[in-house]
Amino acid sequence: MSINWEGVMPAVTTKFNENDELDLKAFKINIQAQLDAGVHGIVLGGTLGEASTLSDDEKRTLTRETVAFVNDKVPVIINIAEQTTKAAIEAAKRAEEDGAKGLMMLPPMRYKSGDKETVEYFKAVANSTKLPIMVYNNPVDYKVEVTLDMFEDLLKNCPNIQAVKESTRDISNITRIINRFGNRLKIMTGVDTLALESLLMGANGWIAGLVCAFPKETVAIYELQKVGRIKEALEIYRWFLPLLELDINPKLVQNIKLAEVATGIGTENVRAPRLPLSGEERKHVLDVIAQGIKTRPSLPDYKNL
């Protein structure tokens, strides 16, 4: 199997109802908005998708329902964030059975694995599945870095490791990856506040967060920069930045779900131990969202550039 690792792929939120059950109706409203905006893939069960709170059955339901709903318009990718190699291999197997087209993979959770342990973990899962894999490299939040030397080993031994979600926060790392691996390792930027900069430095696409609430604006930035209309992309990006900063925050899930409510394509419900925002924190986020909506830019016909 192969995925065209480029374009905008939303790391979608998981919707819950008042009884803390999956809200598939609200979920599909958001997925449809993403498809209408022209996204290039859907990523399920990431940090923003509250993966650590989902049961295996809920992940399977989300995968199957999304695959059926999307109906091959774009690839559906599910995140693997497990504590053991055995569990990660089982998760990859379930993903393949449920129709996912690819995997996003974090290093082992909770245990801070060493370099060799991390490489062997990725190898074991990659060699257990036919699905293409994007390694999620986020040492800032998850404290394990996949270095270029580690990628060298992985790419040599695992042809289905095809991409990296680059979240080191170091823009120059994009150039290092390209210099080292050329087109062998596709780069998907994973930090909303560095997205346009990353794309201009050669990233192939954007695993996005605020796209969950503002899909058209996100895709417009990608498409405009792709055809060299940088000034127009930059104008939208500068408008977007205060909103994008809601993603680089420990409460990104609550922040972005509030934004989804404001744009009419989501609900605020989160799963405990998360709680809805309150007090001054809530007021600040709502003010940022309100200002963004008030000044929302007119977009060019970005789908036909």
Rank of each mutant, 00 (worst) to 15 (best):
S2Y: 11
I3M: 03
N4T: 07
E6D: 11
V8M: 09
K15G: 06
N17P: 12
E21C: 10
E21Y: 11
D23W: 11
I31N: 10
Q34I: 05
A37P: 04
T47S: 15
T47D: 08
E50P: 02
E58V: 02
T63W: 07
E65H: 04
A68Q: 12
F69K: 10
V74W: 07
N79I: 04
E82M: 14
E82P: 05
E82N: 11
T85Y: 07
A88V: 06
I89N: 00
A91D: 09
E97W: 07
A100S: 14
K101V: 00
K101C: 01
L106W: 03
M109E: 11
Y111N: 11
S113G: 13
S113I: 03
G114H: 08
D115V: 03
K116H: 14
K116E: 15
K116F: 08
E117R: 01
T118M: 15
E120I: 07
E120T: 08
T129V: 10
T129C: 09
Y136W: 08
Y142N: 10
V144C: 05
E145C: 03
T147V: 05
L148Y: 12
M150G: 04
F151I: 02
F151N: 03
L154V: 10
L154E: 05
I161R: 04
K165A: 01
E166K: 04
T168R: 05
R169V: 12
I174F: 00
T175S: 03
T175G: 00
T175N: 02
I178G: 11
I178Q: 14
F181R: 00
G182C: 13
L185S: 03
L185K: 00
I187D: 04
M188E: 07
G190M: 02
G190F: 01
V191S: 10
L194N: 12
L194Q: 15
E197G: 13
L199V: 05
G202V: 05
G202M: 05
N204C: 01
G205Y: 01
W206R: 12
L210C: 07
V211L: 04
V211M: 06
A220Q: 00
Q225Y: 07
K226T: 08
R229Y: 02
I230M: 07
I230T: 15
A233G: 13
L234Q: 13
R238G: 00
P242L: 09
L244W: 00
E245M: 09
L246V: 04
L246F: 03
D247S: 15
V253E: 12
Q254A: 13
N255A: 02
I256A: 06
V261K: 14
V261T: 06
A262M: 14
G264Q: 09
I265R: 06
G266K: 08
R274C: 06
P276N: 13
R282Y: 10
V285D: 09
V285K: 11
L286W: 01
T295Q: 11
T295L: 09
S298P: 00
L299M: 11
L299C: 12
Y302V: 11
